[in-house]
Simulated scan of single mutants.
Amino acid sequence: MSNTWRKRDTGITIRIIACLSILALLYIIFITVLAYLGLGYLPIILISSVFILSQWYFSDKIVLWSTRAKIVTKDQNPNLHTLVEQIALVNGLPKPKIAVVNSNIPNAFATGKGHRSSVVAVTTGLLNLLDHDELEGVLAHELTHIKNRDVLVITLASLFSTIAWQVMQFSFFGSMYGVGRDRNNGGAMLIIIAVSFITWIVSFLIIRAISRYREYSADRGAAQLTQKPKSLANALLKISGNMDRVSAREVRHFEGYNAFFIIPAISKESLFNLFSTHPPVEKRIQKLLDMEKSMER
């Protein structure tokens, strides 16, 4: 096996640019059709502006609040702070804020709009489960997400999906409550709903494609940074193996935030690969083990 994994991962940049370009083109077509069919520019601008501003300013705060993540100081958890600080220093990144989630689910995530506003969060379940090297691999994975600005990219990409969904709902309820009583208006509303639905589906699938590749890229970045791919592989194996031991109620609470987690907080039986935000954990582990073999040569 060659050492090509050591090189800079330009694949994620190419894929993100391609996906966002497709989404932008789709969004232009979407807006053009809506305007042509009579949905005024003012409602479109208002809908777009509200959701863009909301996602931009409040997305990270909502994630922290919803997951019950609490920011911890260095005095409260010196070991965790020291480990994150060392990894950030090697990456040339400002040290992110650190949060802990009081949950038995072993997991971690990163959020924030930029390098200086980023937060790395870990659960108490993760801290109790992993050893030092495994935890280092997980933290390096999350810091790679921050370095690649993955959270910002996913937020921007999800705008298209969110706006399409809201316009679809607006059109659907508008047709129900009298806007579509006229035959011509009714036909226009059906076209708007259909175009919105197609836009939402395509956006949904593209976002998942980006999310899946960024997980591979973050695994690879963590392996490059720590030089311990096997430790991250062991961490992924432990996390996925212990996920089913968590109560169903606790898992349901966190399911809506799976795009942020290093491993989806759902049981293996309910994981549908087509709609998953993450690639299969078995494939991720195998890639990391292949990297470990490459380093030994």
Rank of each mutant, 00 (worst) to 15 (best):
A108V: 07
G174E: 03
E292L: 00
I52M: 12
Q227C: 00
V251Q: 14
I198W: 07
I285E: 05
S294F: 00
K70T: 13
F51L: 12
D219T: 10
S270H: 15
F51E: 03
V281K: 02
E269D: 13
L232Y: 04
N242P: 00
L39D: 03
D182T: 07
Q286I: 09
A235L: 08
G221N: 10
I31Y: 05
I71V: 15
K283W: 09
N104L: 12
N273E: 13
G186N: 11
T199D: 06
D75Y: 04
V202R: 00
K74M: 08
F275G: 03
A157L: 06
E215R: 11
E269L: 13
L37C: 03
I206V: 13
K147R: 15
N185K: 14
L159H: 13
H115F: 11
Q227S: 11
V120R: 03
L42F: 14
I52G: 05
L236Q: 07
T199E: 11
N79Y: 09
L156M: 15
S49D: 01
I17P: 01
I192M: 15
Y41P: 11
G11V: 03
L288C: 04
M1D: 03
A235S: 05
G174R: 07
D150F: 06
F204E: 08
S49C: 13
S217Q: 04
L83S: 02
I45T: 14
E215W: 02
F58S: 12
D9I: 09
M1I: 00
G40R: 10
I98Y: 06
K95R: 15
N128V: 01
T144Q: 10
Q227N: 14
K287Q: 14
A24G: 10
A121M: 02
V179L: 14
A248I: 12
I154A: 08
S247R: 09
W5D: 03
I87N: 04
I207R: 08
V101I: 15
V72N: 08
G256Q: 11
F173I: 14
D290R: 14
Q76F: 02
N102P: 02
A218D: 02
V138F: 04
F197H: 01
R284A: 06
